[in-house]
Design a protein around this nucleic acid. Sequence first.
DNA 1: CCCGCCTTTGACCATTTGGTCAAGACGAGC
DNA 2: GCTCGTCTTGACCAAATGGTCAAAGGCGGG
Lengths: 212, 212
Amino acid sequence: MESRLHKKAPKPRTRIQKKNTETILDAALEVFAQHGFRGATLDQIAKAAGLSKPNLLYYFPSKVAIHRALMDVLLKTWLDPLREMDANGDPVEEIVAYALRKLEMSREMPRESRLFANEIVQGAPNIYDKIEGELKDLVDEKARVISGWIAQSSIADIDPYHLIFSIWATTQHYADFDVQIRGILRPEEDTHFDTARVFLDQLYRRILTPLN
Amino acid sequence: MESRLHKKAPKPRTRIQKKNTETILDAALEVFAQHGFRGATLDQIAKAAGLSKPNLLYYFPSKVAIHRALMDVLLKTWLDPLREMDANGDPVEEIVAYALRKLEMSREMPRESRLFANEIVQGAPNIYDKIEGELKDLVDEKARVISGWIAQSSIADIDPYHLIFSIWATTQHYADFDVQIRGILRPEEDTHFDTARVFLDQLYRRILTPLN
DNA sequence: CCCGCCTTTGACCATTTGGTCAAGACGAGC
DNA sequence: GCTCGTCTTGACCAAATGGTCAAAGGCGGG
């Protein structure tokens, strides 16, 4: 029962606590994603959450605490698509599916993507330990899987790490640089995500399929 | 002589003015790139420039003026590699060379890349007009060139816009997400840029080369 | 209906921040 | 070495910002 061994004990007891912490985190996501940590203010978050500033600080001890809570939840969500990549599946399909899953995340969760982008661009001051830790571990593991596929000639011979980086880059780009893309394509609705899906499917299929 | 028609008249008259405005812009680049516009402070910039805060404001009327001056210079530099893409050159080589040129920029000018990234991620509040303007125009023009190459079967049939986006994404990623990449690869020196060059060369060559 | 606890907030505080100002330092031409 | 315009800065200001606190509001169990 006592899982107090973990540093984080986010235990919303009452339902009102649960509701409010969620409201706050959602508002914080919105604001942090748009302005970055230093650029965001408690007043903005409070207003977005529909609560008073002292009330925010009743649920979270400080601004950084809100940000940290957000990043903790985020990193897990963020890595899930990569975790799902199955060493026993069809190699090309697994990697392509991973890329398309990430693209889908850019469409569905652009705020989370931008929050992450802000944090990394500014030097990852709050999550560098996690990058060196669980992120690196997961990537190393999956890079090994990909290397295995290459060794058995199931996919073309390419650097697994740079492959993963390119998937991150090309998919997250559609969330992080959204304004730029919309400024250039001027898409009706989100049609550019459909054309992006076709493009990325084609791209990764072509580089991965072995030449023979 | 009187080029007063242009809104911007950055005319450093004396050499000391020229030197100081340059010093300030360099310091501002450093600070804005790391903290974003709102996260950066005049004191930080002043300290980085080795000048007093009032002295900054002697050369630039305000914080936003510094940022604007920086973005003005930057956008031109940023688009140069794409401008150089020659409609009369060898299609595959032209595009691959463009990608590698952009990668080189990520290596040589990471601060500029991150400044740009910060601005776009946060919704491009200060340069949206330029995105819709000269950036879109240039991209449209080059997309037409690429479409021409596709029509004459010089390269494979892929969406020109998404191709350009993917080049931006995969190359700028090495500057913008630098900490993440270093956290994962732990490269000695900048060796990962060399492996990235090989990877991207291979990648774009393979998707562009027509199947036949 | 009342008690005690969870929740909410107006008023307040210290610090930071963008920006001003007036006075002083400096430097090039005479 | 004097003068005038350029350059530099310490002191200052008003607004914004992260955070505190005491008091009040609300709500469930007896």
